[in-house]
Amino acid sequence: MRSELVFGAMAHISNQFLLTKLAAKATRKLHRPNTRIQETMNAVLVRFSRANPVAGEQPATRLQVVSSVAEVPSNGTHLKQSVA
């Protein structure tokens, strides 16, 4: 039953809202045409119960902002435009 799969997946992800979000994303990415979406969802929950899907994620400790500066002539003047 799916409830057993959900409880198995909750062993690795205690937050039910995070589990729902991750399961939905994984189901969209793993779904194959001409198959039932329910089967894909069950397969995702089985994968989550075997391994922690969040374990590979590393928290962003330091963000680096990269911007480029382009000079755009406008009415004879040069403006600097920052593009993120």
Rank of each mutant, 00 (worst) to 15 (best):
N75G: 03
K80Q: 10
T27P: 00
N52M: 00
S49H: 00
R2M: 08
N34P: 01
V72Q: 14
H12Q: 13
Q58R: 07
L18Q: 15
G56Y: 00
M10I: 03
L30H: 08
A55I: 00
V72M: 08
I37H: 07
E39M: 04
E39D: 14
I13H: 04
V54N: 10
H31N: 04
R47P: 00
L19P: 06
S3M: 05
E57T: 04
E39L: 10
K25R: 13
V72G: 04
E57L: 15
V65H: 04
A84S: 14
K25N: 09
S82V: 15
E57N: 04
A51I: 02
T27K: 05
P73N: 08
K29H: 10
R32A: 12
V69F: 03
M10C: 11
K80N: 07
L22H: 10
F17C: 01
G76K: 00
G8E: 10
Q16V: 15
R28D: 08
I13K: 10
T35C: 06
T20P: 02
P73V: 03
T61H: 05
K21T: 14
L18N: 13
A70G: 02
A55N: 01
T61P: 02
T35Q: 11
S82M: 14
Q38R: 12
A24R: 11
K25F: 09
A23W: 03
S14H: 12
T40D: 03
G8V: 03
V69D: 05
A11Y: 08
S68W: 01
Q38T: 10
R32D: 06
M41L: 15
Q16D: 15
V44R: 00
E71A: 11
A23S: 15
K21M: 12
E4Q: 09
S74N: 09
H31F: 11
V54Y: 13
M41W: 06
G76V: 00
N42V: 01
V44K: 01
R36C: 13
P59D: 14
V6F: 08
K29W: 03
T20S: 14
K80D: 13
E4M: 03
Q64C: 08
L18W: 09
A23I: 07
F48I: 03
S67Y: 14
S67F: 15
A24K: 08
A43D: 13
L63N: 02
L5P: 02
P53C: 02
V69G: 01
A55C: 07
P33G: 06
P33N: 13
I37Y: 08
V44M: 02
L79S: 05
T35Y: 02
V46Y: 07
A55Y: 05
F17W: 09
P33R: 11
A84E: 12
N34C: 12
Q58H: 05
G56R: 03
S67L: 06
R28E: 13
A24F: 11
H12W: 15
P73F: 01
A9W: 07
H12I: 11
E71Q: 10
A70Q: 11
A60D: 09
V54F: 14
L45M: 06
I37E: 07
V46C: 09
S74C: 13
